[in-house]
Design a protein around this nucleic acid. Structure first.
Length: 341
DNA sequence: ATGCATGAGGA
DNA sequence: CCTCATGCATA
């Protein structure tokens, strides 16, 4: 098991924040106001399955057949389906995922300097959902920060020497990985403790996310409520969990320290602009179909995706993204084999 | 808590 | 186009 850990821990990556995000001009999949006309169009007028959810089994089978059929009649080939991860194990185990670095700074144009008052680090019971705003600014990664820790939140360069982590000889390894344990058990325990203490402090997940920026750790900006939530519920990739742990740990310690010393509330006023993104909602029947397709081919080719999209009356990009997200989902800790404890 | 989406980085 | 880390919007 330790070997397993080793193999999947060789991804160091940044915890930077990106997303400069612009208003939802994107691709016109969402209509600005209210309910978008598109979001539910697939519910009743869809291709052929308009059954509320009666026979799933049959439907699923039918869809699978359809999927196979499609690939035959038009592609006549299986393309390159290399996604062999029907077995819930890999988590990037086989592929020594390199790494990535993503850091970029963007501060909200409207709010420059960000008042610093350590606000959210400790919040008193009176209010807890202080900053729902989005002032993600972020990091300026600093090169010289990685200690022995291979999971430094930010790493500065691609590392030319290659094999930094000996996942090749995964067995005699135990070396430098103290505080950044790759042990799922440890992570789980920490996540649990973290949540408990966070709640005790009366801080919301969103607060934590925003407060992270105040820690001013190199390469660490704020995070969303989503991410904090996923960390606590272990629904992040193993590597992601490991990368975030030290950061959240740092916040926790800092917050508890300050909670001890002082108690003062502060709200950071942040107005939100007008940037509403409409979330596409894929109706159940279509979703079931997609799942069926996914079962037989987790990584359909672009052409196949187009076919599926047409068949389900969904935009191709929506289908593509759905598959991407589905694949990612499989790799999340909670459901991956290694997390099984 | 989660579904769908964006974007960086890498082939 | 994919993978991954993340986020907005929403159930």
């Amino acid at each position: 098991m330790s070997a397993l850990c080793q193999t999947m821990m060789n991804t160091k990556q940044t915890v930077g924040l990106h997303h400069s995000l612009n208003p939802g001009h994107i691709s016109g999949r969402y209509s600005p106001p209210y309910r978008s006309p598109e979001r539910v169009r697939c519910m009743t007028t869809s291709t052929g399955n308009f059954f509320g959810g009666v026979d799933d089994g049959l439907l699923a089978r039918a869809e699978v057949l359809a999927a196979v059929d499609i690939s035959k009649q038009s592609s006549q080939q299986m393309m390159k389906h290399d996604g062999l991860y029907g077995h819930t194990a890999d988590l990037g185990g086989h592929n020594a995922t390199p790494s990535r670095q993503q850091l970029q700074m963007h501060s909200h144009p409207s709010f420059g300097p960000t008042d610093v008052m350590l606000e959210q680090l400790t919040s008193n019971p009176t209010m807890s959902l202080g900053g729902m705003s989005d002032h993600h600014m972020s990091i300026a990664n600093s090169p010289p920060m990685n200690h022995h820790n291979m999971y430094a939140p930010v790493y500065s360069h691609p590392n030319p020497m290659g094999n930094h982590h000996g996942f090749g000889g995964h067995h005699t390894v135990h070396h430098t990985m103290h505080d950044t344990e790759c042990d799922p058990r440890e992570l789980e325990a920490f996540a649990e403790r973290f949540k408990q203490r966070r709640i005790k402090l009366g801080v919301t997940q969103a607060d934590v996310g925003n407060a992270l920026a105040n820690l001013k750790l190199p390469g660490v900006g704020s995070l969303s409520q989503s991410t904090i939530c996923r960390f606590e519920s272990l629904t992040l990739s193993h590597n992601n969990m490991i990368a975030l742990k030290p950061i959240l740990q740092a916040w926790l310690e800092e917050a508890e320290k300050q909670a001890r010393e002082k108690k003062e509330a502060e709200g950071q006023g942040l107005a939100c602009s007008e940037k509403k993104r409409k979330r596409t909602s894929i109706a159940a029947p279509e979703k079931r179909s997609l799942e069926a397709y996914f079962a037989v081919q987790p990584r359909p080719s672009g052409e196949k995706i187009a076919q599926i999209a047409e068949k389900l009356d969904l935009k191709k990009n929506v289908v593509r993204v759905w598959f991407c997200n589905q694949r990612q989902k499989q790799k999340r800790m909670k459901f991956s084999a290694i997390a099984g404890h």
